[in-house]
Computed example of a mutant assay.
Amino acid sequence: MATFGLGQPIQTLPPNSEIDSSTPWMAASEGNLPLLQHCIQTMGLNVNAADENGYTLLHAASSYNQMGIMQFLLSQNVNVHAVDSDGDSALHHAGTAQTTQFLIQVARTNPSLQNAEGKTALQVKMDEVNEMMQDEDIEDDDQDLEKAKEIVTYLSNL
């Protein structure tokens, strides 16, 4: 399968795929570029479209570490500083240090951008780490904790 240098195989559209209003966000979060492109074309969707909570396609891709989708959205001039209803940018939603680094270094996202609570992505991720550390079932979130710590480390070293 071709990967376009992004390390992820290209997916194809499922036969007779049904598209509804949530399909583009699902495609972005799952890394299904052909489906996302199909949705954009058939629905006349703008790459800066947001759901009822202000959650954009870039938010979805960032949350689920879909580098290929983020690269595609950047090539379509997506607004990297768009915020959801909580004032969180895609950087606030980033799921890994690699995603965080991509958003800052490639997409030129402002790491100082504050959400509606006045918190930067670093402060949000530090809160997530602290919350997970206080969780009695930490072993269930161990991988998420490590990812959040890596993001904090990266953002702290900017």
Rank of each mutant, 00 (worst) to 15 (best):
N130P: 00
P15M: 05
L57Q: 02
D84R: 07
V129G: 03
S29K: 13
G68T: 01
E18R: 08
L122G: 04
S62C: 07
S89R: 07
Y154K: 02
L158I: 13
I19S: 00
N32D: 08
A60W: 03
G118Y: 10
H92I: 05
I10V: 14
M133I: 10
M133T: 05
S17E: 14
V83S: 14
C39W: 09
E52I: 09
M67L: 15
L58C: 03
Q76R: 15
P34R: 02
L73M: 11
G54M: 06
G95T: 01
S22M: 12
T100Q: 04
N130H: 10
E52A: 14
G95V: 05
L57G: 03
S17C: 14
M132W: 09
L33F: 07
S22K: 10
E18M: 10
L36C: 08
Q11M: 13
Q114K: 15
N53E: 11
G31N: 04
H59Y: 02
A61D: 02
T96W: 06
A27T: 03
L158G: 06
P111R: 05
A90M: 08
S85K: 13
A60G: 05
D86E: 12
V124I: 13
N110D: 15
L155T: 02
V129C: 09
T99H: 04
A94R: 02
T42F: 08
D51E: 13
G95N: 01
L122N: 03
Y154C: 02
E117M: 12
T42I: 10
I19H: 06
N46K: 12
L13G: 05
M126V: 14
F102H: 04
Q71N: 13
L74H: 03
I104S: 02
T96A: 14
Q105P: 01
V80A: 12
S17I: 15
Y154T: 00
L91W: 07
Q41P: 01
P15H: 09
Q143R: 10
Y154G: 01
I69N: 03
L33Q: 04
D86R: 10
T109Q: 11
M133N: 10
P15I: 04
D141M: 13
Q101T: 06
S22P: 00
N115K: 09
S89H: 05
M1Q: 11
M70P: 02
M43V: 02
S75N: 15
I69S: 02
G7R: 11
N65P: 00
Y55W: 15
L13E: 03
L6Y: 14
A90Y: 05
A82Y: 04
N65I: 00
S112D: 13
M70V: 04
W25D: 03
Q143E: 15
I40C: 13
V83T: 13
T42Y: 06
R108W: 03
T153D: 13
A116L: 11
L74R: 10
E128R: 12
V47T: 09
A82F: 05
F72P: 01
Q11A: 12
T42G: 00
N130Y: 02
H59I: 01
D140K: 09
P24S: 04
M70L: 08
L73S: 07
E136N: 09
Q134H: 11
T56E: 00
Q123R: 06
K149T: 03
S22N: 11
A121I: 09
G68Q: 12
T109W: 02
H93T: 01
Q11G: 07
E30T: 12
G118N: 07
D51C: 11
T23S: 15
L155F: 08
T3R: 10
M67Q: 12
